[in-house]
């Protein structure tokens, strides 16, 4: 008894195993079902009739799916790149400069999308962009790019900042001591060491942009559906395994990116 108490372990609590199993079932059974039925021969979501790739074929043949997929990927790459760039600058400013007034404020501002509900941000953007649309008449992808970029910044910022904080400051001092100017110090010392953090930030931003429905729904103009909003629209009408196939591919892409993210953020400087 005494021994058990000394080596307290949460796994020893009664019911731990059943709760754990239940959690995993709730998390993964729906996903597993989705994946399995994407390979179903029939159009049914409840009856398995045999293996087939026909729904993948259908998805690839669907020009609308192709169009929204390309748009979503393009948007995710662009927005995440912009967000990563801005997040890198913000992280440098909040870790590499002496404390300045308003630093905490900037930290809060950068992380605003994490704290404000998406519907609020979405509504605000809708109203704000509507004004600009009225004034300029511009209805292109710029609004979505801007909205996604802003939304992705905190997700890119956090891993980059974490990386910078663990980096030895004397390395940058040493570079300056060896006649490197600010830019050279950044280019040859800080950036190479920061790169895993930057890539991790980019990937996180990429996944977030690919995934976000609410912001996109509020901001997009006609004909600017992304994969996420397109699927939402389809599912409202009829559910076919074609959606399963798209979702499975989507899942695969996210999984690959997330795994890469973990590998990169684990790598120590």
């Amino acid at each position: 008894m005494a021994r058990a108490r000394r080596n307290f372990s949460i796994t020893a609590l009664p019911g731990f195993a059943s709760i754990a199993v239940l959690t995993f079932v709730l998390l993964y059974v729906p996903i597993a079902t989705l994946v399995v039925f994407s390979f179903n021969e029939a159009a049914s979501m409840s009856r398995w009739q045999g293996f087939s790739l026909q729904w993948y074929q259908a998805a690839f043949d669907n020009s609308q799916v192709r169009e929204v997929s390309i748009r979503a990927l393009w948007l995710a790459v662009t927005a995440s790149a912009i967000a990563t760039f801005a997040a890198t600058l913000a992280a440098l400013a909040t870790t590499r400069t002496p404390k300045f007034p308003g630093q905490t404020m900037i930290y809060a501002l950068v992380n605003q999308p994490l704290m404000v509900p998406e519907v609020v941000t979405g509504t605000a953007l809708l109203i704000f962009f509507a004004g600009i649309k009225m004034q300029t008449g511009y209805t292109g992808m710029g609004y979505l790019v801007a909205a996604h970029s802003a939304f992705c910044i905190p997700f890119a910022y956090l891993p980059i900042r974490a990386r910078l904080q663990t980096m030895d400051l004397t390395l940058e001092r040493a570079a300056a001591d060896l006649y490197a100017n600010h830019f050279q110090t950044f280019r040859y010392v800080t950036l190479p060491l920061l790169l895993p953090g930057v890539l991790a930030g980019f990937m996180l931003g990429f996944v977030i942009s690919l995934d976000t429905v609410v912001i996109t729904e509020f901001v997009k103009s006609a004909g600017q559906d992304t994969l996420a909003t397109y699927m939402l629209g389809q599912i409202r009408r009829t559910v076919t395994p074609e959606m399963n196939a798209i979702a499975t591919l989507f899942l695969l892409l996210s999984a690959v990116v997330v795994v890469l993210f973990f590998i990169l953020s684990r790598k120590r400087p």
Partner: peptide, 9 residues
């Protein structure tokens, strides 16, 4: 430097 501060990369 006391900790040498060699560039690890």
């Amino acid at each position: 430097f006391q900790n040498y501060a060699l560039f690890p990369h």
